[in-house]
């Protein structure tokens, strides 16, 4: 554990909490892609199956359980509790276009051809593209509330900090996880355009912003 990794995990937690509290307080999930949130719940479910098979640390176990619980709570709020406010007409990204290649790739490129490893690889690949329905939705509607932008900012920051963590780990422990690093870099690239707009528009006080 290093400071970049810890800061990355904390930004991830902050992002998830921002989204959950936004929905809870406004009693509305308008502008939020339920599809992205289902994909994230699927990411955590397939990655954290090792909760049942191996113990790494108390921190690791607690964070996994928290991420799982929060992601399912978010999905519950969107599709059950506040489903009247769910903007399904604009959440039209075809998820199968992500799932089919991701499933295919996880069978082709993995550390060992076992169900657990294939599911772990699937979760890593899926996480790198899971935000696409949300970004697609913002592009379609032309704007997002600033709170949604803060959510995306912290999610992007989490990815960027993980890259710094990998650079650090490579130099200090010789650690290099090819699958995680390659898909992590791909994932972070998706946020670059957003980061630029966030800094130039949201932080300079316009509140709302639109993606080109």
């Amino acid at each position: 554990m290093n400071i970049f990794r810890l800061a990355g995990d904390m930004s991830h937690l902050v992002a998830i909490l921002i989204l959950l509290l936004k929905i809870w307080r406004s009693r509305s999930c308008a502008g939020i892609s339920g599809k992205s949130q289902v994909l994230f719940a699927l990411v955590f479910t397939t990655r954290y199956l090792d909760l049942f098979t191996s113990f790494i640390s108390a921190y690791n176990t607690v964070m996994k359980v928290v991420f799982l619980a929060l992601s399912y709570a978010t999905v519950y709020l969107i599709y059950m509790r506040f489903r009247n406010s769910y903007d399904s007409e604009n959440d039209t990204f075809r998820v199968e276009f992500l799932l089919v290649p991701v499933i295919g790739l996880s069978f082709l490129e993995n550390y060992s051809f076992t169900p657990m490893e294939i599911l772990w690889t699937f979760s890593i690949f899926l996480e790198s593209v899971a935000i696409m329905p949300q970004l697609f939705m913002i592009t379609k509607t032309g704007e997002a509330e600033s709170i949604t932008n803060h959510y995306l900012f912290f999610l992007g920051l989490y990815r960027a900090l993980y890259i710094v963590n990998w650079v650090w780990r490579y130099h200090t422990e010789g650690f290099f996880d090819q699958i995680a690093v390659v898909s992590g870099v791909v994932q972070t690239i998706f946020y670059c355009d957003f980061f630029y707009l966030y800094v130039t528009r949201v932080l300079r006080g316009r509140g709302k912003m639109s993606l080109p």
């Binding site: 995990d9 991830h12 790494i56 996994k64 550390y111 060992s112 490893e117 772990w120 996880d177």
Partner: peptide
């Protein structure tokens, strides 16, 4: 030893 090595990250 690929397996196990990456499992400490979330």
């Amino acid at each position: 030893d690929a397996e196990g090595k990456h499992k400490d990250e979330l």
